[in-house]
Design a protein around this nucleic acid. Structure first.
Lengths: 170, 170
DNA sequence: CGTGGTCTGTTACAGTGTAACAGGGCCGTC
DNA sequence: GACGGCCCTGTTACACTGTAACAGACCACG
C-alpha cells in the first residue's frame, strides 16, 4: 500500500505494546487495543479506520463519510467525526492540522521521539516519521522559554522521494 | 502558502533583512516592507494588521472582521482573508494551523532557525520563538527520509510561564 | 480622458466542526 | 422478563472556515 519512510534516526521503537511491529497491521492493532482497554470496536469505527487506512493521502471527514455511505444508507459527517475522535484518542489515526484531514497512524510514538508528518505537494501522500533529534531540540527550546508542553505537532510540506525521482524539472 | 522562493535550506519564509531589529514595531515594519517592495499598504491591510497585533491571542478571520466593522460599515470576512493572505506572504502575520487563527509575526525568521509557536491552553496567548536546534534536527530527519521540504510548521500546546506561576496547583 | 491593474464589496457556495436531542442496543440488576 | 443506565449512532441545526466569481472603485500611467 503506502510505504512509510522508515524511521530514519535508526533509533529503535520505545514502547513495547503500541507500535506496528513487523507484521501487525493497523486493523489488527485497533482490535487488540480496544480489547485490551475495554473499548467498543464498533462497526462504524472499524469502517472509518479502514477508509483512512485504505488511502495513502489524508482524507477529510466528509470524504470519509462519502466513502462509507452506500445508496440508501448514508453516514453523516458528524458520526465520522465522533469515530475519528475515538480513533485519534487511541492513537490509531492522526489529524493533519494544516490540511484538516486524517491519516492512519503508522508508528508507536513512544517517549523521546517527535512525530513528523511529511506532506507531499505533488502526489498528496502523507508520510510519517519520528525523530529523537527534533524532540531534543524541542525540549531544550521549551525549557528555555519556560513553556510546559502538553502536545505538539510538526508538519512539513514539500516533495517526497518518489516524486523527486519522477517529475522534478530541476 | 508562501510565494517566496526560499534560499537553499528551503524552509525559511523570508529573507534575512526584515526582522524586528530592536525597537521597530510591527506596524512600522509593515510600512517599511511595503515601501521597499513597492506594495500597497492599504487601509484594510493596515487595520487588519492592527487588529491582529492588538491581541495577545490568535484571532480568527471572522473575529477580525467583526473588530473592523462599525455600525453602517461592515467588513466581510472574505476581505479579511485577502488582507491576511497579503500579510502572511510578506511575513507580517502567521497562521496557526491547529487553531485556524492568526497572530502577528514577532521575529525575523532568518535562515537556519525554525519558528515555534507556543499556544497556552490556559490564557490563550500565542508566543513565538525560534530554534536552531529544531531546524538542525529537522534537516537531518528530512534528509534521511529523502524528503525535500518547502515549508513547515511547529506548534506546541501547553502552559505558558505566566500561567504556571499563577495557576499551577492553586 | 481613457485604459489597465490592483484592491475591495458582494454574493454564493463548499468544507469544517460542534451542540443538542432522540432512538437503539447492550448489559447489569432487580 | 422488565427496568434502567450507559454508550453509540442518527438526525437536525447551526456556527465557523475558506474560496470562487463577478462587479465596482480607485489609482497610476500614457
Amino acid at each position: 500500500m503506502h510505504g512509510h519512510p522508515s524511521p530514519s534516526d535508526g533509533t529503535g521503537p520505545a514502547d513495547a505494546h503500541d507500535h506496528a511491529c513487523g507484521g501487525e497491521d493497523l486493523l489488527a492493532r485497533a482490535e487488540r487495543i480496544c480489547r485490551e482497554r475495554g473499548l467498543h470496536y464498533t462497526d462504524l469505527r472499524r469502517r472509518t479506520l479502514e477508509a483512512v487506512a485504505g488511502e495513502g493521502r489524508a482524507l477529510g471527514a466528509y470524504d470519509i463519510a462519502e466513502r462509507l455511505s452506500v445508496p440508501g444508507r448514508r453516514v453523516a459527517a458528524v458520526s465520522v467525526y465522533r469515530a475519528l475522535d475515538f480513533l485519534t484518542e487511541n492513537g490509531l489515526v492522526h489529524r493533519i492540522a494544516s490540511r484538516n484531514a486524517f491519516v492512519p497512524c503508522g508508528h508507536g510514538h513512544g517517549g523521546g521521539e517527535s512525530t513528523v508528518f511529511l506532506i507531499c505537494r505533488t502526489c498528496g501522500t502523507v508520510g510519517e516519521t519520528v525523530s529523537r533529534d527534533i524532540q531534543r531540540g524541542l525540549d531544550s527550546t521549551l525549557a528555555s522559554a519556560g513553556f510546559k508542553p502538553v502536545s505538539h505537532i510538526v508538519e512539513v510540506e514539500g516533495e517526497c522521494g518518489a516524486c523527486q525521482g519522477r517529475g522534478g524539472t530541476e
